[in-house]
């Protein structure tokens, strides 16, 4: 996995709460058996005015000019800003693959749905929880200016806006290390192979019906 140390980028303000994974990536795109190519379908129902599926050439589709992602000032924005409970709904990791495919490296929100939050880390996308009032002020900043840039520094767990303002955030240390070092989580877990085997052997005698098939 690609390392994540610090990222500076333009903010994409998506002013909604409870953004669900069906909105992030509609179900017709879950039929793909690859992890790649989902970027053009990010927020598909909101982004395009005509329907599409995995076969549609997105360059021929009708763009919804009112949707924030299509506004010229947010072109190439790669830090998504949203309201509470972002990523609720299904467990589809495809939603994160869509964000990543589009180029989003960081999602900032007051809270995230649990499964989505987990899925982000597995793909090098950093979910940052900031207090609701901070998120609110970031929305106000983007509204005041044409667009804003933020720096998200995972080494110091800090989001900063120019030299003027900065806010701390917290991330589980093991997750932080995995991102900083670009670790493959399975390899890390397999370092505990002996402990897993011991545990399993104990289960085989205490709850043998789990194994008797």
């Amino acid at each position: 996995m690609k390392k994540f140390l610090s990222h500076t980028g333009k903010v994409l303000p998506f002013d909604r709460s409870n953004v669900d994974t069906d909105a992030i990536l509609p179900k017709q795109y879950l039929k793909s058996i690859s992890k790649f190519g989902f970027g053009d379908w990010l927020f598909d129902d909101l982004r395009y005015l005509d329907p599409g599926d995995v076969r549609t050439d997105c360059t021929t589709r009708k763009i919804n000019p009112d949707f924030v992602l299509n506004k010229p000032q947010f072109e190439n924005a790669n830090i998504l800003l949203a309201r509470e409970n972002f990523g609720c709904g299904s467990s589809r990791e495809h939603a994160v693959w869509a964000l990543k495919g589009y180029g989003i490296r960081v999602v900032i929100a007051p809270s995230f749905a649990d499964i989505f939050y987990n899925n982000c880390f597995k793909n090098g996308v950093l979910p940052v929880v900031l207090p609701a009032n901070v998120v609110d002020s970031l929305f106000k900043l983007t509204a005041q200016h044409e667009s804003i840039q933020l720096t998200v520094d995972l080494e110091n767990c800090k989001v900063s806006y120019g030299n003027e303002q900065s806010w701390s955030f917290t991330v589980d240390e093991s997750r932080r290390q995995n991102l900083l070092q670009g670790h493959d989580e399975i390899s890390i877990t397999l370092l505990q192979t002996a402990a897993i085997q011991d545990f399993e052997n104990n289960l085989k005698s205490s709850e043998e019906w789990l194994f008797s098939q």
């Binding site: 992890k35 990791e93 994160v96 987990n118 899925n119 399975i186």
Partner: peptide, 13 residues
Amino acid sequence: GIGTSEVEHVLAT
């Protein structure tokens, strides 16, 4: 419920 990376993780570990 888990994501696909976790499906792979559980299969492997």
